[in-house]
Amino acid sequence: MSSANSPRDRPVILGLTGSIGMGKSATAAMFAARGVPVHDADAAVHALYAAGGEAGPAIGSLVPEAVRADGSVDRNALRVAVLGDPARLAALEAIVHPLVQERSRAFLADHADAPLVLLDIPLLFETGAEERCDAILVVTAPPQVQRARVLARPGMDAAALAAILAKQMPDEEKRARADFTIDTSLGFAHAEREVDALIARLTRESPG
Rank of each mutant, 00 (worst) to 15 (best):
I13G: 02
G208S: 11
E65A: 14
E102M: 11
F180Q: 12
P57C: 14
A129P: 07
A197V: 07
L119E: 12
A90H: 09
Y49S: 00
L165Y: 03
K174F: 03
H97P: 04
R147M: 06
G15P: 09
V96W: 02
L161N: 02
A90M: 13
R68K: 10
G128H: 11
L151I: 01
I199K: 13
L108P: 06
F180V: 08
A112Y: 02
V145N: 13
K24W: 04
T184M: 05
V38R: 12
E102H: 15
M22R: 09
L83H: 14
P98Q: 12
D134V: 14
G53I: 06
E130L: 05
S206F: 10
P207Q: 12
L62F: 06
D134H: 15
M156S: 00
D110K: 11
V45S: 08
A32D: 14
L137G: 00
A106K: 06
A176R: 15
D70S: 05
L137K: 08
V138I: 03
R79N: 00
G60S: 08
A91G: 03
D134A: 11
A200R: 15
L83Q: 13
P115Y: 08
T17A: 07
E172N: 00
T127I: 04
A51E: 07
S104I: 15
D120M: 06
A51F: 06
G21L: 02
A43P: 07
A94E: 02
S61A: 14
L119A: 12
R177G: 01
L124F: 02
A58W: 03
V80T: 10
P64M: 01
G53K: 12
A158H: 01
E173N: 00
S185R: 14
G53S: 03
R105H: 12
E173G: 04
L165E: 11
A81T: 00
S25I: 11
A162V: 02
L123Q: 03
L62H: 14
P154L: 08
T17I: 04
T27V: 10
P37K: 11
I13T: 13
A90G: 10
D113T: 04
S3I: 13
M1D: 09
F180L: 00
G21A: 13
V138Q: 07
A114W: 12
T27F: 09
T181G: 02
R204Y: 06
D113M: 01
A176S: 11
L165T: 05
E192A: 14
P170K: 15
A160M: 15
D74I: 07
A90D: 10
N76P: 02
I136Y: 03
S61C: 05
L78C: 07
P143D: 09
A106F: 02
A41R: 15
S185K: 11
A41K: 14
L83C: 04
Y49I: 12
H190V: 09
A135C: 13
T203Y: 02
L123F: 00
L202S: 07
Q144V: 05
L116G: 15
P57D: 13
I136H: 06
E102T: 15
